[in-house]
């Protein structure tokens, strides 16, 4: 590990200044950052330990729920209100990582975790995300985990997390304090970027920005499902995941909020799916139409071609479970 300075932030007002310094990075749970520092993928000059800041509360705010940036994944998944009103979020978190990791992982850290692309984590390989301009090894190489939607000729990495996929389905908002001390909020759906020609930028955070929390909107009626497809039944990243909030009335779909993990550089949300499904009677042919729409621009890179039919089937299976249609 490259030598670095360690500094602890004791007050929120000081954090922006500390993390704005060149080569400085904030550390929370550290389960991703320290791993990447050992691999010399991340080589900060200074790490700013933000763990003692009072940002770990989970509390009702208006009709919704505010999850502090430093609330651990365990605290969020175990919270009574999350389990009763936002079960999709608890399920998504519990489908990821291990208990040891969830005990350390935080809301903000989870949002900001880096891709698990094998070329990104291996400094002997080309990677435009890690080393802009060096090329992409995955496009013509090993691409089993990689994206099928929203890729660019620079990068086909996926956002690896589960938590943010559920938050995208819920239309949660990320609360950010900028360097000047102003607070803004942005939808989780808009927080992560597509790679385009700047794959080194995973999300919309600017230097000096600090995430202070995530706001869940008022609970909505309906079934909340999180279906994750992976190589083994526990402790593996999603090949594809579907977060679905589906409500029905008199045999017709009245709500269909869907988000997808493991298939793009960001939690994938396509508003057209809700528009297609709402007002319709659920059926296998309707679900097939939804998959056609979702996947109309999808393309694989050889090793991950299977994700296109896999996503189609995962979507159908999730919608069948939510609406009671026989698969």
């Amino acid at each position: 590990m490259k030598p670095f300075h360690y500094q602890r932030a004791d007050r929120l007002e000081h954090v922006a200044q500390l993390i704005s310094a060149s080569g400085a990075m904030a550390i929370a749970g550290g389960t991703n950052l320290i791993d990447l520092m050992k691999l010399q993928v991340e080589t900060p000059d200074t790490i700013i330990d933000v763990n003692r800041l009072p940002l770990d509360q989970i509390a009702e705010e208006g009709d919704g729920l505010r999850i502090g940036a430093l609330a651990t994944n365990t605290a969020t998944a175990g919270h009574g209100k999350v389990r009763s009103d936002y079960p999709i979020l608890a399920k998504a978190i519990l489908a990821g990582a291990t208990q040891q990791l969830r005990n350390k992982a935080t809301t903000a850290g989870n949002l900001c975790q880096r891709t698990r692309c094998y070329y990104f984590t291996n400094i002997d390989q080309p990677c435009n995300k890690r080393d802009p301009g060096s090329g992409c090894g995955a496009i013509t190489g090993i691409a089993r985990l990689h994206a099928i939607l929203g890729t660019s000729d620079q990068c086909i990495a996926t956002y690896p997390g589960d938590m943010a996929v559920a938050m995208a389905a819920l239309d949660a908002k990320v609360e950010i304090k900028d360097r000047a001390g102003n607070t803004r909020s942005i939808a989780v759906r808009d927080f992560h970027r597509l790679p385009n020609d700047a794959p080194e930028k995973d999300n919309i955070l600017e230097p000096g920005d600090i995430i202070t929390g995530v706001i869940l909107p008022a609970p909505v009626p309906g079934k909340q499902l999180y279906r994750k497809v992976r190589e083994r039944s526990s402790y593996a990243f999603a090949l594809c995941s579907v977060a679905a909030i589906i409500d029905m009335d008199e045999g017709k779909i009245t709500r269909a909020d869907l988000a997808f993990g493991g298939i793009a550089h960001k939690p994938w949300f396509d508003a057209r799916l809700g528009e297609l499904l709402v007002g319709e009677t659920p059926s296998l042919s309707l679900f097939d139409k939804a998959a056609d729409l979702l996947l109309e621009d999808a393309h694989g890179f050889g090793e991950n071609d299977f994700k296109i039919p896999l996503t189609r089937r995962a979507l159908a299976a999730t919608l069948c479970e939510a609406t009671g249609v026989d698969a």
Binding site: Y6, G29, G30, T31, I34, D35, K38, T74, T98, Q99, Q100, L101, N103, K104
Partner: peptide, 22 residues
């Protein structure tokens, strides 16, 4: 690297991977 769990210890009552924390 936090993949095997051999380093698991209990910190303030919670189990964590001691390899992934400073």
């Amino acid at each position: 690297h936090g993949q095997c769990g051999a380093c698991t210890v209990i910190v303030n009552g919670e189990r964590i991977n001691s390899c992934l924390t400073l």
